[in-house]
Structure formats: structure tokens, C-alpha cells
Computed example of a mutant assay.
Amino acid sequence: MQDEQTNRRVENKYRPLGELVRGVFFILFGLFAIFAEKLGMGEFRISPEAMSILGAVLVLYGVFRMYNGIRKLFFNRN
């Protein structure tokens, strides 16, 4: 029974870390979508306005993922 509790605790610590990592990737993809064409790193077939909107949505979703991960890691006291 004690082994089950320790395994559950370890599993619960990895999930928020995954949230943080996913958040960082979404933020990076969003920044790439916003600035890639302006910096000459890529050319997209959709309008720059649509890419900026997509980038902003990706960045916001990444911030949300990071917030969730931080909240679950540090502020969820059971």
C-alpha cells in the first residue's frame, strides 16, 4: 500500500512538469509563427495577419499550460 502511494506521488510530479514543457513549446511555436517571416526564417502561404493571430493564440495557450503546471506543482496542497 505504501508503494502505491509513493508511485502515485512520483506520477503526480511528472504530470505538471509535462505541462510546463508543453507550455514552453507552445510559446516557442507561437513566437516562431509571429516572427519567422519578419526575420526571414520562413515564408508561409497564409497572410501575415493570420499568422500573427495564430502565434498569439499559441502563446496564450502556452502561458495557460505553464500556469496550470506551476499551479499543480507548487500550489496544490492535498
Rank of each mutant, 00 (worst) to 15 (best):
S47D: 15
L60G: 11
S52H: 06
V57K: 14
L54Y: 11
L20N: 05
F29G: 03
G55A: 01
M51I: 00
F35D: 08
R71K: 13
L28S: 12
S47Y: 00
I70M: 02
K72N: 12
A36E: 13
E43M: 06
M41E: 11
V21A: 13
N68S: 10
M41V: 08
F44G: 02
F75I: 06
E37T: 13
I53W: 14
M51C: 04
L17R: 09
A36W: 03
G30C: 03
V59Y: 01
F74V: 11
L60T: 12
M41R: 05
A56D: 08
G23N: 03
R71H: 09
G40N: 01
K38R: 15
I34P: 01
F26I: 07
E19S: 11
L58C: 12
F32C: 00
A56N: 07
F75T: 07
G30Y: 07
Y61K: 05
A50H: 04
Y14C: 04
I53K: 07
Y14M: 14
I70W: 07
L58Q: 14
V59R: 02
G23K: 01
K13T: 12
P48H: 06
G55N: 00
M51L: 15
E49T: 15
M51G: 00
G23V: 06
V21I: 13
E37K: 09
G55W: 01
L39H: 07
R71S: 09
V63I: 15
V24M: 02
L60P: 00
V59T: 12
G30A: 03
N68D: 09
F26T: 07
G55E: 04
M51V: 00
F26L: 15
L28H: 06
R65N: 08
V59A: 08
I46Y: 10
P16G: 05
F29L: 08
G23D: 08
R65E: 13
E43N: 14
K13V: 11
F74E: 08
V24N: 00
A50C: 01
A56V: 14
F74H: 07
M41T: 00
L54Q: 05
A56H: 04
L17C: 07
I46P: 01
G18E: 13
V24T: 11
G55P: 03
L20P: 03
V59F: 05
G40D: 04
V57R: 13
P16K: 03
F35Q: 11
E49Y: 04
Y14T: 15
F44C: 03
V21D: 08
S52E: 15
F35W: 09
N68W: 06
E37F: 05
E49P: 01
A33K: 13
F74I: 11
Y14P: 00
L20I: 15
M41C: 04
L54E: 06
R45G: 15
R65A: 10
E37R: 14
K13E: 10
F74D: 08
G69L: 01
R22C: 10
P48L: 05
Y67R: 05
I53D: 14
E43R: 07
R15F: 13
Y67I: 05
I27L: 06
F74K: 10
N68H: 08
A50F: 09
G23A: 06
V21G: 02
L28R: 07
L60E: 09
G42I: 10
V63R: 02
E43S: 15
I27R: 00
V21H: 05
S47N: 12
F44I: 02
L20F: 06
E37V: 04
R77P: 00
S52K: 11
R77V: 10
E43G: 01
I70N: 03
Y67G: 03
L54N: 04
V24R: 01
